[in-house]
């Protein structure tokens, strides 16, 4: 079954007097439980494609389908609902809420989802253990290392078991050891929970974990190959 389908996506940005084609007739299908890396040099269009799949940005033309629902025609509210219930985001810069503790950062999204307090507490502690952060639940982001913060961000993204996780340069600020640990975690989630991962990266180490590697250049897909994951 297809988790994500993009059909002939085009997106142009205006930068000064120049039009930049971030997506140039991009079409791609990603199967459920897929583990896909989008690789491109800076400005190649991978983040724009990721944002379009997540409903954060609208393409100028083309269609975006997530879980058999066309999202490029959805309202802001419908997109928010979709992201809340079905999509987890992991960002390069962790993007945790600085005034909340690790546990509160994770519970915040669940509270918005309407998860009861007791269940929130149980799930947040369980996911923190799963990402190896037991005992750090009461620390605020400023009191944690980059790797720990990224783990909290991942925990926040996956705590509600979304069908799709979109990660934009998740290892850019991590050392190699932490990057490997993070990718191992992603791989396990992909295997055990059938979570679909779409990761935008130009980190060769990350690409080794992908089952499928999609290379982009100037807003186009130039290569799409299946590979044996690490």
């Amino acid at each position: 079954m297809t988790a994500v389908r993009c059909v002939d996506l085009c997106k142009t940005y205006r930068q000064g007097d120049e039009d930049i084609k971030a997506l140039d007739h991009v079409s791609i299908d990603i199967e459920e439980a897929g583990f896909v890396c989008l690789s491109a040099p800076s400005g190649g269009g991978k983040t724009t494609l990721l944002n379009a799949i997540g409903g954060l940005d609208m393409p100028d033309s083309g269609e975006v389908w997530v879980a058999d629902r066309r999202i490029d025609q959805m309202s802001k509210g419908e997109l928010a609902e979709l992201r809340l219930s079905s999509i987890g985001f992991v960002f390069q810069a962790y993007n945790l809420i600085p005034v909340l503790t690790a546990r509160e950062n994770i519970e915040f999204v669940m509270q918005v989802q309407g998860v009861p307090a007791k269940q929130r507490a149980e799930q947040s502690l369980a996911i923190l253990e799963e990402v190896g952060l037991s005992g750090l639940e009461d620390r605020r982001p400023a009191e944690m290392s980059g790797g720990q913060q990224q783990r909290v961000a991942v925990a926040r993204a996956i705590v509600s078991r979304p069908a799709l996780v979109l990660a934009d340069e998740p290892t850019a600020n991590l050392d190699s050891k932490t990057s490997d640990e993070l990718m191992t975690l992603f791989t396990e989630l992909n295997r055990h929970h059938n979570t679909t991962f779409v990761i935008a990266t130009h980190d060769q180490r990350v690409m080794r974990y992908a089952k499928r590697l999609v290379r982009m250049l100037d807003g186009r897909i130039v290569d799409d190959i299946a590979q044996d994951a690490a």
């Binding site: 997540g54 954060l56 802001k76 509210g77 928010a80 609902e81 979709l82 992201r83 809340l84 219930s85 999509i87 985001f89 960002f91 993007n95 809420i97 600085p98 915040f108 999204v109 918005v112 989802q113 926040r156």
Partner: peptide
């Protein structure tokens, strides 16, 4: 920060 939480699904 508001952009982040909106990406997480907040309206």
């Amino acid at each position: 920060e508001f952009g982040i939480v909106m990406s997480l699904g907040l309206k």
